[in-house]
Nucleic acid binder design. Structure first.
Lengths: 233, 233
DNA sequence: AAGATAGTGTGTGAAATTTACACCATTAAA
DNA sequence: TTTAATGGTGTAAATTTCACACACTATCTT
């Protein structure tokens, strides 16, 4: 009877699908690789987990090292473990995803030399990505599309203060369908978790819209873990 | 610049949370371990993935070896990767889950000596489990509770022919709440994916109920990947 | 055979939610 | 002052959800 673990040449890696919203487009964070295999290719930010760190911690560290982004609220997506997915050996990758506010971030500067650069790229017309990263992205995108109907993830992508039109257009972009303005506003406001500010939009050459804030405290009170945000029609 | 993978003493394992429904109770499949660590403890069926098999294939193989169940439609749940989760070293486990028909299964007979036996245990009052398996179970249970509202997973747990009362009671057990009989039946039938059989229930000492079948073909036609089964009130 | 027992099967009205739909208001720039 | 662009608002019809109670049927017991 074995009492110790077998020795395998297996490693875990992390890959991150980080979504952002900018200029009316949904984007994800990519890096340009500076290391074989797939040197010079575009890829999701990802690297190998150390032996003495938890997978969750590793994910945070790796995202930071490759993009300079710290303390991102990443969540696990799925684990990809096909045998041939990495040309150099057995690498099972644990994918994470997050939705973040592009605007609030400083510049994206990798702190390792494994990536030449990190940058935002629209999810429409993504280039070919290294490894199986295209599949990982698609899995993540499907997940957030669906999750948008259940969880208040849209607010993570918007600036702290936003207009209802911005919010609606984000829903439209993610779900790839038009929504009715009056119904959308009525419904969103009816939940009661949007706080109307006295401020207005600035710098626009048309009538300035009211700004709103997402009140997470109220949200949690209202939907104590039971939520259902549906936006149809 | 590295061009080969580092060598780590890391292994992947699989753990399976297999749900079944029997005698009005929701159950999961457990094994009694025959190997250190946690020898003689109850645990989820799980073992170590080989280096030359995909994680998905490994999951199927391991479930078979520990329980005798083949070709189960298992799906990935979550990956658990805390550093200290395995007392003998770095083991990241990829958890899978499935909902299956207990009735159709032959006996549960492990084909390896790693498990003394495999058996069904009600999810109410689960014993202490090895490793972090209790947390894995809870994650799976949360997942299916939620998924019940979106996907036709209840039918995987029932016999092929079932009564509406059985279906309702399964919903009630998973969601731990009472549902209204008339509303439940009205709603379920309104979807149009239940096929009423001419047969009736047998062997009961009261009026026999009609039997129904889940018509997956119709289901797919109706909800082409867009589904929303809500059972409230 | 009469009654007890246990679960089957059915409909309606009130309330809430969803849907479809169009025009005037405001601001800044030309 | 005109134009261009977006902001902001209400109502009625249709649909869905919800609450709710009783007669029917098969078997078992005596």
């Amino acid at each position: 009877m074995e009492t110790t673990l077998p020795k395998f040449d297996s490693v875990f890696s992390i890959d991150c699908v980080i979504f952002g919203f900018e200029a009316g487009e949904l984007k994800i964070l990519l890096i340009e690789r500076n290391e074989e295999p797939f040197k010079d290719w575009f890829a999701l930010p990802g690297y190998i987990v150390e032996q003495d760190e938890s997978v969750d911690d590793g994910a945070k560290r790796i995202l930071y090292e490759l993009t300079g982004l710290r303390n991102m609220p990443i969540k696990q997506l799925h684990t990809f473990g096909d045998v041939g997915r990495h040309p150099q050996g057995r690498v099972v990758t644990i994918a994470y995803f997050a939705l973040i506010r592009i605007s609030g971030q400083k510049e994206l500067t990798p702190v390792t030399h494994y990536a030449k650069k990190a940058f935002w790229h629209p999810v429409k017309e993504l280039p070919k990505l290294a490894f199986d990263h295209t599949i990982i992205f698609e899995t993540a995108f499907r997940r957030i599309r669906r999750r948008l109907n259940y969880q208040p993830i849209a607010f993570d992508l918007l600036p702290e203060k936003f207009t209802l039109t911005q919010l609606q257009s984000l829903y439209e972009v993610i779900q790839d369908k038009k929504l009715d303005k009056r119904n959308f506003r009525k419904k969103m406001l009816s939940y009661g978790f949007l706080k109307e500010l006295s401020e207005k939009q600035k710098g626009v050459s048309y009538r300035a819209a009211k700004l709103y804030k997402f009140d997470r405290r109220k949200y949690n009170k209202i939907f104590q873990n039971e939520l259902n945000i549906q936006t149809t029609g």
